[in-house]
């Protein structure tokens, strides 16, 4: 666990830098808000509706597919580190594993899940 202490220190110091920067600006910068200034920016027009609306389901599809493939990538990491020890057997096993995933990949391509237009 000791090796991780510098990482936590680094995270804490990075946070401190960000907070100090923001506080400094709060202290140095002017502050005279008005309704126009605080309204949502829409190229100088009065804003039409809000941003809390429905958006394309494609983004959701990409996120779901990402989870699937990211798990595949995580499986490959321990295998890659021990690649030489596993030898030909490990190689063939992993090619089979990738081939099975490839079927799923071709299926989503065929279904048009990644079709943007």
């Amino acid at each position: 666990m000791e090796a991780y202490i510098p990482i936590f220190l680094m995270l804490a110091i990075a946070l401190a830098i960000g907070v100090v920067f923001l506080k400094l600006q709060e202290w140095l910068g002017p502050r005279n808000p008005n309704d126009e200034k605080l309204s949502t920016y829409e190229s100088g027009m009065a804003p039409v509706r809000t941003a809390r609306e429905r958006f394309s389901v494609k983004y959701y599809m990409v996120a779901v597919l990402f989870i699937l493939f990211d798990i595949e990538v995580i499986f490959l990491y321990p295998w890659a580190v021990n690649f030489r020890a596993l030898g030909v057997f490990g190689y063939v096993e992993m090619v089979l594993f990738i081939a099975i995933l490839l079927v799923g990949y071709l299926y989503i391509l065929k279904k048009g899940a990644l079709q943007w237009d």
Binding site: A14, P30, R31, L38
Partner: peptide
């Protein structure tokens, strides 16, 4: 440093301030 910090009334104030901090911490560490 000498600019005004504008937070729109429609924004979610806490997350609005948190987001740049997340970006910075991740980038620096």
């Amino acid at each position: 440093f000498f600019k005004e910090d504008i937070v729109p009334t429609a924004a979610n104030k806490f997350v609005h301030s948190l987001a740049p901090l997340i970006s910075l911490i991740v980038a620096l560490s």
